[in-house]
Design a protein around this nucleic acid. Structure first.
Lengths: 202, 202
DNA sequence: CCCTTATCTGAACAATGTATAGATTTTAGA
DNA sequence: TCTAAAATCTATACATTGTTCAGATAAGGG
């Protein structure tokens, strides 16, 4: 059984994944607003209309690319988190900070990806397979907050208030900075402010 | 002196403001991503190329529309704020809540406007005339926080942490809800969480 | 009244998403 | 293995878009 069929004169062999990976490449470079179906097809060496056998339109190709990016973000976050070991209060605090930082860093590194993920193309409720609470980035947050509580760093009564708050602060600040509506150097202070308000003292 | 010149066969009379208001109308209806220069011109009854005498391209027309919207948002906020009078602690608390609510309500009422305002077309730092700190919505926030402090509702030490925090929470939550990435009924809880974390008790 | 300047039109161009008909290859059944 | 059906891809076409540019039309100043 051939893992990847060879490119024939006529049949590509694995056009669907080629479409996604090429769309990913061009989105990374030029942003999803400027992604051209024809350029994707041309880059692969296939006619424009060939794409319509795998995606009904440009939007659903962008959706396929976008939804796959949540795992890339989570991978980056977990790679950063793994650098901090131990179950002390300090380790839990460091992980919380790392989580907020990695979200921001990844978005700054891949602004076009970040924009696509939170665009109209990647609506969670449109696809029941994707729910925010079940997404790995959000699960990383809840786990991190639980660790803060169990190490006595975060007040138990604050726990229920901290989840959506942290999520919206980190996402809101990141989003504003990536889009150019907030100075980039303000991010550290915002994380400081958040920890201060949550009662996580240094 | 004629306030508004009458439309001639050939010369429109006040094409620049007609362009802005028509672009505003179509953006409100279809979103800025779908704003067509040609449709704007057609709606006014002018040729497509006429627009290029007032705006070098589609982007700068969108920018003109977008920047004007910050005042509309502020107008709405201040209209809501004006309903709450007095300088008691309760009044200050109510105004803070009203400020967060009005931001959200306006965005939900005009999602396409909200998206345009925080798009790449309306970058504050691109135009030195527009700075976030000087924008009326942000000034409403700082004033409101100062009132909370002066009525003893917000701890003085928390004041410096509350500004960017409130801003990013309210904007982040609003942005996520408007774009469909967060359930709409989560907003009230987020404001509750914010007040709790800031130490503003009921 | 003429001539300069501002304003607008008409036609054109390249790029885009997408639909449809038909060509080519693969695959399954006899 | 042969053949018919299904899967896959191409060619062509169409409407729409932003934008450019040469030229037409009107307004205003001397």
């Amino acid at each position: 059984m051939p893992l990847a069929k060879v490119r024939n004169q006529y049949h590509h062999g694995d056009l669907e994944s080629a479409l996604i990976s090429t769309a990913r490449k061009l989105t990374k470079r030029n942003g999803f607003e400027n992604l051209s179906l024809r350029k994707v097809a041309e880059d692969i060496g296939v006619s424009p209309s060939a794409t319509y056998h795998y995606f009904p339109d440009r939007d659903s190709l962008l959706a396929a690319v976008g939804f796959s990016l949540f795992d890339e973000l989570a991978d980056y976050q977990e790679h950063q988190l793994a650098k901090i070991t131990g179950s002390t209060a300090k380790a839990a605090k460091d992980r919380f900070r790392s989580l907020g930082n990695s979200y921001f860093e990844w978005a700054v590194k891949e602004p076009h990806f970040f924009n696509l993920m939170f665009s109209e193309y990647c609506l969670m409720d449109a696809d029941p397979d994707h729910k925010r609470e079940d997404s790995r980035p959000y699960m990383n947050l809840t786990k991190c907050l639980d660790e803060l509580v169990s190490t006595g760093t975060l007040d138990e009564r604050m726990r229920e208030h901290s989840e959506l708050l942290s999520w919206t602060v980190v996402h809101g600040a990141t989003s504003l900075i990536v889009s150019g509506h907030l100075e980039s150097d303000g991010y550290k202070k915002i994380l400081d402010d958040l920890e201060y308000a949550l009662g996580i003292r240094k």
